[in-house]
């Protein structure tokens, strides 16, 4: 593969980078990233990855764009209200960069379908808004050995961690299971600063690109937390848990299982 004149211009600011160059850009064009959830986190991640020329971007979501989404999910526009999120997201990503291929999955990930979906990708971005999905993604990526970026946002706080399954601290090393129902407020109950999604989703995209190009130090074994009010980032070192029910010495979890939905109000979802 060699870059076309148009591609050389489009990606010139990447190519100039010593650590990227033409070879790195070509690698990105050959790479595949899956974004689960076309919401607050998935929006900036999808747009930046598309702009960066990640050749294949998969996007999973079962919802339609709602007016309440637009405060933070910047991939969707007012005119998209009522449109499937994956369609809306695909249109924006293709508009930014017609070079790329967008794969869409109009579904909610569950224990039955997730392995087949993630298997084709080099990296997964968890942009979901509920605990069962986050545990499911963690487990599925562990079984399929696919690196992923976990993140969560609430009010003025965000956090993220990158997981290389079997090598670095996983989500279950930190939390063995979802919290009990209503112990943690969900987004719709608690509210969230829109721009927070932009910051954290962009960091997830950064991790994806670094992983794909083998650049720098990944955010592994470290949970990065962000407090927008104090304007404070903290890196919390978290070692692997030898008793992790998933990746520990004596794993209890040996197959995928849907966790009980405890937080999000799902009655509007038609999937």
């Amino acid at each position: 593969m060699s870059l076309t004149e148009k591609q050389i211009e489009r990606y010139s600011r990447h190519i100039i980078l010593e650590q990227v160059g033409g070879k790195g850009q070509e690698k990105l064009l050959r790479s595949k990233v899956l974004i689960i959830g076309a919401g607050g986190l998935g929006a900036p991640a999808g747009l930046y990855l598309a702009a960066a020329g990640v050749g294949t971007i998969g996007i999973v979501d079962c919802d339609k764009v709602d007016l309440t989404n637009l405060q933070r999910q910047i991939i969707h526009h007012t005119s998209d209200v009522g449109v499937e999120k994956i369609k809306s997201a695909e249109n924006k990503m293709r508009a930014i960069n017609p070079d790329i291929t967008v794969q869409t999955y109009q579904t909610r990930v569950d224990a039955k379908n997730i392995s087949d979906i993630i298997r084709k990708y080099d990296f997964v971005i968890d942009g979901t808004d509920n605990f069962p999905a986050k545990f499911l993604i963690n487990d599925a990526c562990y079984f399929e050995k696919i690196p992923f970026s976990h993140a969560g946002i609430l009010r003025f706080h965000g956090q993220l961690i990158t997981v290389l399954p079997g090598e670095t601290t996983c989500y279950r090393c930190i939390f063995s299971a979802p919290p009990p129902a209503n112990a943690v407020p969900s987004c719709s109950q608690a509210g969230v600063l829109g721009v927070l999604a932009g910051v954290i989703g962009s960091l997830q995209a950064t991790e994806a690109i670094k992983y794909l190009l083998g650049l720098g130090k990944l955010l592994t074994g470290t949970l990065l937390t962000y407090d927008a009010l104090e304007m404070n980032f903290r890196a919390v070192k978290l070692n692997r848990n030898p008793n992790c029910p998933l990746c520990g010495g004596k794993p209890k979890i040996t197959e995928l299982k849907d966790e009980e939905q405890v937080v999000c109000d799902l009655k509007n979802c038609k999937c």
Binding site: L3, I8, E9, S12, I15, I16, G21, G22, K23
Partner: peptide
């Protein structure tokens, strides 16, 4: 500039 550098770099690669 900087497209000249971009093209030269690609050639060097």
């Amino acid at each position: 500039c900087p497209l000249n550098f971009v093209k030269a770099k690609l050639e060097l690669e």
